[in-house]
Computed example of a mutant assay.
Amino acid sequence: MAYALFYQDAKLSKAYPTEADVWKLARKSGLVVDATSDDEKASPRPVLDNDYEIRPCQLDPDEDPAKNKADADREARLEPKLSS
């Protein structure tokens, strides 16, 4: 089963092997915010901003989720790191 980022019914990302891979992409893209409820004030949980969703998806023809993940991991390693 492959997963992707969606807004309403539009698939916004490539397909990835796991839901965790798409969460990583969404976090890197600034689409994840911390939300709290009255019961969770001490530990906020991450949620997607603006009604984005991560859900199972159909693969496009010739799409390879493992290759998409490898490409994203390689790009992340090549990006310059900003010092704080």
Rank of each mutant, 00 (worst) to 15 (best):
A20Q: 10
R74N: 08
D38A: 05
R27E: 14
C57M: 11
E75H: 11
A4W: 01
A15P: 10
P65N: 05
A2E: 01
Q8F: 05
Y16S: 00
R27T: 14
T36K: 10
G30N: 14
A72N: 01
A70L: 00
D49M: 14
K67D: 02
R74P: 05
P61D: 06
S83P: 08
D34M: 14
E63A: 07
P80G: 12
A4L: 02
Y7V: 11
F6L: 14
S84W: 15
D51A: 07
K81L: 15
D60F: 08
Y52M: 06
K41D: 10
L59F: 10
V32T: 09
D64F: 11
L48H: 13
E19N: 08
P44K: 06
D64T: 01
V33R: 02
P61K: 12
D64K: 09
D71M: 03
E19V: 02
L31T: 12
A66V: 05
A76E: 04
D9S: 06
A35W: 05
T18P: 00
L12S: 02
A15I: 00
E75V: 04
M1T: 04
D71Q: 08
L59M: 09
Y7I: 05
I54W: 05
N68Y: 03
A76C: 05
A26C: 06
L12N: 05
R27F: 11
T18G: 01
E75M: 04
P17C: 12
A26L: 03
Y52L: 02
V47H: 04
E19W: 02
R77Y: 01
P44F: 04
Y52I: 06
V22M: 00
G30V: 03
K81T: 15
S29C: 03
E79K: 07
L82R: 07
D64S: 08
R77A: 09
Y3A: 03
P56Y: 01
R45Y: 14
E79A: 01
L12Q: 14
C57G: 07
S37T: 12
N50H: 13
D51L: 07
Y3T: 00
Q58N: 09
K67P: 12
P17R: 00
V22G: 04
P46S: 03
D62Y: 15
K67Y: 09
Y3L: 03
A76Q: 05
L25A: 10
C57T: 13
K81Y: 11
L59H: 03
L12D: 03
L12Y: 09
A10V: 11
A72V: 04
P80R: 13
P80T: 15
E40G: 00
E79F: 08
W23Q: 14
Y16F: 10
L25H: 09
S83K: 13
